[in-house]
Write a protein that binds this DNA or RNA. Structure first.
Length: 382
RNA sequence: GGGUCGAUUGCAGAGUGGUCAAAUGCUCGAGACUGUAAAUCUCGCGGUUUAUACCUUCGUAGGUUCGAAUCCUACUCGGCCCA
């Protein structure tokens, strides 16, 4: 399922080929978040033009809306969203963090389950490790993630331990349910999805280690880095990321969940992380922030990154008044005619009038930047 | 021509003697965004500024008052009603 094409001679970075039920992917790769089974504002045809390899959908969000019954009737989430390429489903674990750790009134985390109040209608929703896996099978995704308890990084030592215990216990149950489902559904051995455990432990190396070792004992196809990859001041947790990667053997896929900024992704590949997902390109695009490369990619990314404090990208806010009369094109090198032909002044105008086309173009610009970056990263693994 | 109501900082629109550089919304200016409760959120928005400071400002010109966007007079402009 996982074939190592090339190991970097000087770094942990590696080039992989991953075989999934819906197709092959070359790693390292980046997946945009189509949380509710759509990459906001963007259609599948356009994604194909960008050579997108995979997207991420969310178990929790799809459970709430439209519900698994509809998706089953549609023949799975691939058919439902008309994306026949690889899909990863996130477990809903992050929503534990996002909804409950930040706002206790939204529900409660028990030892054996999570209870949420649906933000849509206030109804009570229960998620268990087993249910999360069952739903992911109903979705029919290529890569699945164990339900985890995603704690804030600054949790007290004792609370962090308890949280990690929970993540480990739930991972064990997820794996058991995963194989139960494979047996029950008589899934072909080489057509089965991949299952990822999630390493938690915040900024504590001891907890990260304990979590990783326990998950390795249970056995998965890949392990992920859980929780926010930045501290409360927004600083990238490079040391913890590097240490956590080092705990994962080579035969495992290494998944950096929710990572991140372009520079962080480059740094993570250098540490051995293989795959990433993040809302940044699409969300920031919707908010008017556009990414563009600084060096035009004609350099060795890793060396440049290491030898200078320069970032490999820059951003600009298309809503700023200085773009009112900037008739230069959004991106003359784009694969997409719309980005090669529409001017920044026009894009500025679209944002000013609140036209969704503006959000779409900006998100596409950022997504293309991320995908180009990943291609350049793969080309630079030597 | 007569009567009547009104004129507030980009717009709309509060405020009717001091706590008003003046609510609120919008516009405008900028920032944030990391497994998406996010087409969202934050900050700024007369000037000088470290400022609980000073200056200029509520149609125009005067006046009353310790003190006026708020009260009085005239004028200008606008809405409505009557001729």
């Amino acid at each position: 399922m996982l074939k190592i094409i090339k190991n970097s001679t000087t770094k942990k970075a590696r080039l992989l080929e991953i075989n999934l039920p819906s197709g092959k992917i070359n790693a390292p790769f980046f997946m945009p978040d189509a949380t509710r089974a759509v990459l906001k504002n963007i259609d599948v045809e356009t994604l194909k033009k960008l050579n997108l390899s995979a997207q991420v959908v969310n178990t929790y969000h799809l459970l709430l809306q439209p519900g698994t019954a509809i998706i089953k009737k549609a023949g799975g989430v691939h058919k439902f969203m008309n994306w026949l390429g690889p899909l990863l489903s996130d477990s809903g674990g992050f929503q534990v963090f996002s909804l409950l750790h930040r706002n206790k009134s939204m529900g409660k985390i028990f030892d054996d389950r999570v209870e949420f109040k649906s933000p849509l209608d206030g109804s009570k929703q229960i998620l268990t490790p087993e249910k999360s896996i069952q739903i992911q099978f109903d979705l029919g995704t290529d890569m699945m993630v164990c339900l985890d308890d995603c704690p804030p990084n600054d949790l007290s030592e004792q609370a962090m331990k308890a949280s990690v215990d929970k993540t480990i216990a739930w991972a064990r149950r997820c794996r058991a349910e995963f194989y139960r489902q494979i047996k029950k559904r008589k899934t072909d051995k080489d057509k089965r999805p991949l299952l990822f455990g999630v390493i938690q432990g915040g900024e504590s190396k001891d907890e990260r280690k304990r979590c990783a070792e326990s998950l390795l004992e249970i056995g998965f196809d890949g392990l992920g880095y859980g929780a926010r990859p930045i501290d409360k001041d927004g600083n990238f947790l490079e040391e913890i990321l590097r240490y956590t990667a080092s705990l994962i053997p080579d035969e495992y896929l290494r998944f950096g969940l929710g990572i991140g900024l372009p520079d962080d992704i480059v740094a993570c590949v250098d540490m051995g992380w293989d795959m990433f997902d993040c809302v940044i390109p699409t969300r920031e695009g919707r908010h008017g922030r556009l990414y563009e490369p600084i060096f035009n990619f004609q350099f060795s990314i890793f060396n440049e990154f290491k030898s200078s404090n320069d970032s490999i990208f820059k951003t600009y806010n298309i809503k700023n008044s200085k773009y009112k009369e900037d008739f230069s094109v959004i991106n003359e090198n784009s694969k997409l005619a719309v980005l090669r032909e529409y001017s920044r002044a026009y894009l500025h105008h679209l944002f000013k009038i609140g036209e969704p086309l503006g959000q779409r173009l900006a998100a596409l610009n950022n997504l293309e930047f991320y995908l180009e970056l990943m291609g350049e990263i793969r080309a630079n693994i030597k």
